[in-house]
Simulated scan of single mutants.
Amino acid sequence: MMDSGTRAMLDAVGEARRQLRENALPKARDGGREKVPAAEEMALLGALAALVESAGELAYAVADRISPDNSEAYVQAYRRLDREARNLRDEERKAKGRAK
């Protein structure tokens, strides 16, 4: 039987994935759509950064609750996700600078 806290984490991650696949990806893949305006590009970069940050925070938060055989994988995932979130935040700042 799965712990209710673990089930809640899995459900939340699954729901986020489902929402992205069903709502965001079809819009992104629609070749007939116009270019994303600069202001919206900044918002999208920020939203992606926040999503990646949240995934990293989850990995880090559970790392000490995972078996020693796997805990390092969670810590490494956190570090990589944190680095990518910072990259997205940097690009968001650059886009804001260009828009001024």
Rank of each mutant, 00 (worst) to 15 (best):
D30V: 07
D82Y: 02
A38M: 12
A12Q: 12
G32N: 06
D64N: 07
N23S: 05
G97L: 08
K100N: 09
R98H: 01
R18P: 04
E41K: 10
R18V: 05
L44W: 00
S67M: 07
A77F: 03
E15S: 05
L44G: 01
A8Q: 09
E22G: 12
R80Y: 11
A43T: 08
A59G: 09
V13Q: 13
R93C: 02
D11K: 12
N23I: 04
L51G: 14
S54I: 02
D90V: 06
L25F: 12
K94V: 09
A16I: 07
G14Y: 03
D30H: 06
D3K: 09
A12G: 03
S67N: 10
D30P: 03
L20S: 09
T6A: 13
M2N: 05
V52A: 01
V36M: 14
D64P: 03
V75A: 05
Y74I: 02
A95D: 02
A49M: 13
Q76H: 08
Y78S: 04
E40C: 07
K35A: 15
Y78T: 02
A43V: 07
E57W: 00
E41C: 08
A43R: 12
R33I: 07
A99E: 05
A61N: 13
N87T: 13
E53A: 06
A49R: 00
N23M: 04
D69P: 05
L25V: 08
R29A: 14
G32K: 06
V36N: 09
D64L: 05
S54G: 10
V75P: 01
G46T: 03
E92R: 13
A99Y: 04
P68Y: 14
L58G: 03
A50M: 14
G5H: 12
E92L: 12
L20A: 11
R17P: 02
G56I: 00
A49F: 02
D69R: 15
Q19M: 03
L45D: 01
Y60C: 06
D69G: 10
K27M: 13
A63S: 14
L88F: 13
P37W: 09
S67D: 10
G56V: 00
S54T: 07
Y74H: 10
E92Q: 15
K96F: 09
P26T: 08
L88S: 11
A95G: 07
R93E: 08
A39M: 05
A55F: 09
R65V: 04
D82W: 01
L45H: 01
M9L: 15
K94Y: 07
P37V: 11
A85V: 02
A50I: 11
M1I: 04
A73M: 11
E34F: 07
D3T: 06
A99R: 11
L48E: 03
R83I: 01
Q76W: 06
Q19F: 03
E53Q: 07
A38T: 13
